[in-house]
Nucleic acid binder design. Structure first.
Lengths: 343, 343
DNA sequence: CTGAAAGCGCTTACAG
DNA sequence: CTGAAAGCGCTTACAG
């Protein structure tokens, strides 16, 4: 005999009472509850999750789908670790567990998600790296699985999402650069279909237009979001007839490759070309020159993701009556040395 | 009606036959199997995981426990993303899923693990960031949960582990530096109880001893494994009466902070002090000077972890008859510019 | 080759 | 306040 049956037998009470005591049901006699709780702690009893899930029709877990391998691994970047922590801090208050589900770049992300949904091992899902057109959103909506996307998409008219405020970043960066006298401002965006690339490019164009500056297609540089991508972008900048005097990077670690290639050409970032990165990382202020970039709290972002997700789940909705379903997450400029303050 | 019952009803056969067909049991008539498989694909039927788990007594999942938040997030570093991918590539061949379980730095890692084990939602576990004395190992052994540790520990005489070959790295690095004429070689290690710090320090001392060099306690520098930790180490080096001429970093991103602080003092890494980092990252070769460091395949490491774990699981052991239970993972030196080649 | 039935470990109406 | 029993969705001996 094992499990709850064993525990009930040891205590000489029924499994129903044990279950009720453990789950904090109000009708249990306090003395009984105390005995049960003590025995459970002593024996290390915790309910088998499959048994609970099967009976209750839910899993008490939320899945967070991320990409693993390939490009994901090359982005030397712990963005998600910080976010997980924020998500978890909210979930744990509601006795929900966070399960991270890494989808290999070799697997089809849609099929991967389809299986997760069908197996019913999570009650809600957070998806990330949203594509411009993202069939996963359709899939989740059709399946009735509560979810939230980290990143906007053109798919899913009604779905919840939180996204970084790319418009705000582009505006602040362009304003700052124009104020310093820059007229030829380049932008580095990803070379794949991830939606943030389009969003950032459009925001950059609008910001230029606001200042009466035309957007030059040769200053929109697509590359991998990686250190190496930054190197290649510098390479392309160096080859231009008329070089930009400033560049805006959608991924901050590109700065390292950019710095390196500029250095090899005898150019100095911050002096010869102004550089503004995207998200502040642990390294930003230690680069030479320190990278001007934008700060956000990953923990707070995770908290917001979890709250907005729970707000879409019937069983938790009541706790989050006025939680926004969609949010642009603000970032705050952190001045560095890379944008030519000293020129 | 839903689930397998619905599917069986649609096909007008029993749920037993549907189950057998779906699970590839040999006794099913091929025509029947084909009908079942087609209907399942059409309707997107996938067995409810709780139902399966409860009946089979296993979960078809392996858990990978990592730390999230706090220090983990500050290590700007995608070590685990690459490893996950390797783990998954092996698991998927055995119809096992990978579930990553982030343990918040606010939670007690032992309690966290205890719950995971008790709930029986994974069949095997990979733990990481092994401590010198790690009660999790005791816990897993006592519970009879198959597991493998990424990182050696003094706990768990018989447990499986894979660890990086810190001795090999220390030996290669010290040999190389001594050959270049260095006699005062410092080492940067973590300021917490993670076992790799002790292992690396001991390996460094032995390597020095092999060359007849004494180990000077003031050259063993403890700091956080972070960019900032590297900055602080440079600070302390600059304050020393007799500075080291070379330094070995157990965490490669410390190099960024170190470079920065040396630069502020008008010193040039590679010229004024030789630097050797630990693991090659996406940035290593783009730093100025490019960091001399050590290469390993994260994917291959993940594959090895998964194989060795499966070798400890009764249901899979037969597939891995001669898989080593313990392994030191070799790293290969990648020469850069930071160790004073040019001096 | 297939069906009927038991039972995995829980939670929860229901009866007392 | 507690117990006995049903049943969540599966898989698998067992019988035919």
């Amino acid at each position: 005999m094992r499990g709850i049956r064993q525990l009930a037998h040891d205590l000489d009470i029924s499994i129903g009472t044990v279950s009720r005591a453990l789950n904090g049901k109000p009708e249990v006699n306090e003395a009984t509850r105390k005995r049960v709780l003590e025995a459970a702690a002593r024996l290390g009893y915790v309910a088998n999750q499959s048994g609970r899930s099967l009976r209750q029709g839910n899993s008490s877990a939320v899945g967070f789908v991320i990409e693993s391998g390939g490009r994901a691994a090359e982005n030397n970047d712990n963005f998600f670790m910080g976010v997980f922590d924020g998500v978890q801090s909210v979930l744990s208050q509601h006795r929900l567990d966070l399960i991270v589900l890494p989808c290999s770049t070799n697997d089809d992300p849609v099929e991967f998600l389809r299986r997760i949904v069908a197996r019913q091992s999570v009650d809600g899902i957070i998806i990330s790296e949203t594509q411009r057109i993202d069939p996963r959103i359709e899939l989740l909506s059709a399946a009735g699985m509560p979810f939230i996307a980290l990143g906007r998409s053109q798919s899913g008219a009604n779905c919840s999402w939180i996204d970084l405020d790319f418009e705000g970043v582009a505006n602040q960066a362009v304003d700052r650069l124009v104020l310093m006298g820059h007229k030829r401002i380049a932008v580095a965006i990803p070379d794949n279909q991830i939606n943030l690339g389009y969003v950032f490019r459009d925001a950059y164009r609008s910001a230029l237009a606001r200042h009466g500056l035309a957007s030059d297609p040769e200053l929109i540089l697509k590359a991998r979001l990686s250190v190496e991508g930054g190197y290649q972008i510098a390479q392309r900048i160096l080859a231009l007839k008329t070089r930009p005097t400033a560049i805006l990077l959608v991924y901050e670690l590109m700065a390292l490759g950019l710095y390196r290639r500029l250095g090899e050409a005898g150019l100095s970032p911050g002096r010869d070309i102004a550089v503004i990165g995207f998200r502040e990382g642990a390294q930003s202020s230690f680069l030479s020159p320190a990278l001007t970039c934008f700060r956000l709290s990953l923990h707070a972002l995770g908290v917001a993701l979890a709250r907005s997700l729970l707000a879409t789940m019937p069983a938790y909705r009541a706790h989050f009556p006025s939680e926004p379903r969609r949010r642009l997450w603000p970032l705050e400029l952190v001045p560095g040395e890379s944008d030519g303050r000293t020129r």
